[in-house]
Design a protein around this nucleic acid. Structure first.
Lengths: 225, 225, 225, 225
DNA sequence: TATGAATGAGTCTTCATTCAT
DNA sequence: TATGAATGAAGACTCATTCAT
């Protein structure tokens, strides 16, 4: 869909184009979009192929089966998330509060707002039917993700910026709202009818606000029986 | 079926009457379990029928189609949650902190820990394919649920127990972790491989703790740019 | 295709007839005919179903897969051959020459002239692709068949009717022409063009004649270097 | 196509000339091996091409279709057998018994033991699906082959070495065991499980022995009703 | 000529749905 | 009502064949 292609050529779309390198990526993109949109089962391989601009048979040139395609979609879109992220946080300068706020905003920008959030939805929806994908996601996304958050919280506690916390659980305090937000975007949030649209910016702002209030060192705990 | 049921019962239900009324319910139960477990598409109607102890044909006597069954499952299991809940909270005596804590614990006991949490998973997973179900869920569950939480928070703010809050957003501060917890239970949490099991009790305890800390009136807000 | 069905009823062929017991047999018959005629690969399951008067789906109600159907066809048509045969020969009265002649004629009547000969063709044609079928055929047909022939020859030798023979090999002296005859019938013999049609009666007559001549005790062996 | 090939090369074999002429032969060899091994339908053209060391597309440069390739395989491997054979037997010196023995041994050496036996298997297995191939085989192999055998038998009868025979049928007395042997080698004989392996040498030895015994002139015929 | 990416008609197989009993 | 045999539309996948390079 380059500009030229819109201007020139009423001729014809070149058929039987040979683009071996590009194909898998195009198919993966098409599959991601459709799987996220309609779910794995409700997406026909022919649709994926069509969206990628190729025929059904071509898809099977690159992926052994529909399941194989599914797994490739997940893997492809998960792989490169954490390496860069980890670095960033290792060299972070500033308060732990800022760090946490930055983490959550960044999370949204780089995952929630991209197709990666579709992956999260997909994996959670289909985890039961694809245990190996679930395990893979667990080790490649959840574990490192949690570790990252935990690091931030530990830093805050160490520096006396946050009060002492049960880190194992505190991690979910950050993770849960973010995952909720991503899921929501791809389920209820995508239904036009929904009046209660969740605005990510405001949502995150509030979550951060409450979290930081709640974690900040203070003398008294609210009444607990 | 039992001998007694054949002997006693004066104005007795007719003998071979094999609980006609119960059938739809049994089918709905079976369908709920299987849909939650395997997803809508991966569940065969024959499995549902088998689990309910009837034949495939019988299922179609009560439900026009598989989709119809799906919608009935959702509707059936959503319906009656809030009436009783609302009452309970209208007459609640005690601090708003306790009220919030109670709300979240109750939520888990009555939804998270029951098949109702399966519904949430189901609806979120299939929302795209069943927009009317999503809309229905929105109006029957999400809206009243949010209203309930909002009420609690408003009470806390009014009474000066909580600091002033943007209630529209604050609601999600409570809702997000609970929905996350239910989703998790039915996706990643159900995969044996998962080492990072989330313990609901501890999870909720921590969430409440941080929330109350974070919402409780205090003089200084943590650094916000 | 009974006579009545041709006379009466211009009404309509009853659709959706329920004949659970009859179905597998009808399908097996249809499959046998088509497999023998066109080979396994060239036969479409839909053809089999159509020939059996049912729909494609019905076939899969009774057989898990096309391969499964193939194996069932073989098994079904092989099973009951030898039990009755063995008895017959155990109680045979008469010369061993007559016995051998009877064996070969009977072989043709009961196998060669029936669909069972199609099985032989089928098994030999597809043995490579279905090793387990080949093994099954080996143990259920070839081994008992050879044993039967061997018994007859041994009897002849014992009684001094035949000259001493290397029985292991002599068996093939009887078996080879019969198997050739069955194969021929279903391959070259079925092609109209073929001028050299093999007439089973005369073929067997000659084979028996030469065999008996050749096996009959005599003093001199023809020149062997 | 190289520049050199246009410039140099007086009568020299051009350098990069990759044996154009050899290609079809290599493909035919590969096809023969695979067709014999797996059957026509179960062999993919890509496998044939790979085995011949060329690409799939190249195969279609030389053969219009898979069927065309099949027919070429048969034709190619049948053609030149009989010319040399006929000569040999026209000038044979020695007893007709020796001649027959020699014929059968030679048959095995030059057909049974070579890929030509695979052709027989192939043709018999697929005769139904390729009637023209069957007809061709009939006229190019079976008719001349039978004629050859018939000639030998006639010679024996003429010379008084064999007893008078119905030659039309007697021919099969020789042909049947040989064809059986070839078929067996490529079907049951190729299945490892098979304990009853037929040893060609001993098999032929016995067949010849019985045939010669059976055909040799003698006064009495065994009891025939 | 040779390649191998691309095609799409053809098949097997599944499963929601129907309907005769 | 209840059954479950039968149906057939739909979908995954294969592979002979084509064609741009």
């Amino acid at each position: 869909m380059s500009i030229e292609s819109l201007l020139i050529s009423p001729e014809s779309p070149p058929k039987r184009e040979r683009r071996k390198e590009a194909r898998p990526g195009e198919l993966l993109d098409a599959a991601l979009a459709l799987f996220v949109d309609k779910g794995f089962a409700a997406t026909r391989v022919e649709e994926v192929a069509a969206r990628a601009g190729v025929s059904k048979g071509t898809l099977f040139l690159y992926f052994q089966s529909k399941e194989d395609l599914f797994k490739a979609v997940i893997r492809e879109n998960i792989a490169s998330l954490f390496p860069t992220w980890n670095e960033e946080f290792n060299s972070f300068q500033g308060s732990s509060a800022d760090m946490l706020r930055y983490a959550m905003q960044t999370w949204w920008e780089r995952m929630g707002n991209t197709s990666a959030s579709g992956i999260a939805k997909l994996v959670m929806s289909e985890a039961q039917n694809f245990p190996d994908i679930a395990a893979y996601y667990q080790s490649e996304v959840i574990r490192p993700g949690n570790a990252l958050i935990r690091q931030i919280l530990a830093r805050g506690v160490d520096r006396g910026e946050f009060r002492p916390l049960d880190l194992d659980q505190a991690v979910y305090t950050v993770v849960a709202p973010m995952i909720f937000l991503m899921m929501w975007k791809h389920s209820m949030g995508a239904c036009a009818a929904s009046a209660e649209i969740v605005d990510p910016e405001r949502f995150i702002h509030m979550q951060v606000d409450v979290l930081l209030h709640g974690m900040t060192a203070s003398t008294h705990t609210p009444t607990t029986p």
